[in-house]
């Protein structure tokens, strides 16, 4: 056999990313804990919170009911949880020396990050779709265009928390990082008014707009009311995305630096 690179068929970086992404999704799908988070938690939350009093005074747009508001919120919450824990998986892979091993392959470190983000966001999209299915049969109503708009915003918005997961995954030791992050995402979701809406008269109303979940929560529910997109939500989402990306890049650079 010959062992020179020139005689062997090659597929290049894009092919490598595609294969790696397929395998990564496979891994996530057979990981029991990530499956529970993805498939059970968001629909379960929908069923729990659908009867919550906090939602009773929600004013919805034409053809849209309050249950749709609950469903969209829970779908986003599910996506954020799944995406965060997926991206934070880099911590365990660093601990196992896998990222170091990857550095002696042609795969660029950025491609690795891309694979982790795309895989987690794909799984996040699955969580959104499942919650929508449960919501549809659980009584949520809204126009078709709104279903699509909310779904797309939820999936795209989950990028903010993919960056958060990456940042934490590069910042903190593996240990039980993912088990710690899920409750943190839940807390942030409460604080940002994603799980139950923040009523205007509570002391929470003042700080909610500063919480990382607030922007994406407002954005994902914007199509329901049919009105415009609140500026403060856009600023919140973009700012937190920038903060988390900057943090992830900073730690990633340190991780891949040559000593």
């Amino acid at each position: 056999m010959t062992s020179t690179t020139s005689t062997t068929p090659t597929t290049g970086q894009a092919g490598a990313i595609r294969t790696y992404l397929g395998l990564e999704l496979n891994r996530l799908l057979r990981d029991r804990r990530s499956m529970l988070l993805t498939f059970l938690l968001p629909p379960l939350f929908f069923l729990i919170f659908r009867s919550s009093a906090a939602y009773q005074d929600i004013t919805a747009g034409t053809g849209t009911n309050a249950l749709a508001y609950v469903m969209v919120s829970m779908a986003l919450y599910g996506a954020l949880t799944v995406v965060t824990s997926g991206a934070a998986g880099v911590a365990a892979e660093r601990a196992q020396g896998w990222t170091r091993q990857l550095r002696v392959t042609p795969l660029s470190p950025w491609s690795y990050v891309l694979v982790k983000v795309l895989a987690s966001m794909t799984l996040g999209a699955v969580a959104v779709v499942l919650t929508f299915v449960v919501g549809r049969y659980g009584g949520a109503e809204m126009p078709l265009a709104t279903w699509i708009a909310c779904g797309l915003i939820a999936v795209c918005g989950s990028f903010v928390f993919a960056a958060f997961g990456l940042f934490m995954g590069y910042l903190l030791p593996a240990g039980n990082l993912v088990q710690v992050l899920s409750p943190i995402v839940l807390l942030l979701s409460f604080a940002g008014g994603l799980i139950v809406p923040v009523s205007a008269d509570s002391w929470f109303a003042g700080i909610a707009p500063l919480v990382p979940t607030y922007g994406v929560a407002e954005l994902v529910r914007a199509p329901l009311a049919g009105g415009g997109v609140p500026q403060v939500a856009v600023v919140n989402a973009v700012a937190w995305a920038a903060i988390f990306v900057a943090g992830a890049v900073w730690r990633f650079r340190r991780d891949t630096a040559r000593m």
């Binding site: 068929p9 092919g15 490598a16 395998l23 990857l102 392959t105």
Partner: peptide
């Protein structure tokens, strides 16, 4: 996966 990372088919 290693084969794919090296572009080997």
């Amino acid at each position: 996966l290693t084969a794919a990372l090296f572009g080997r088919t």
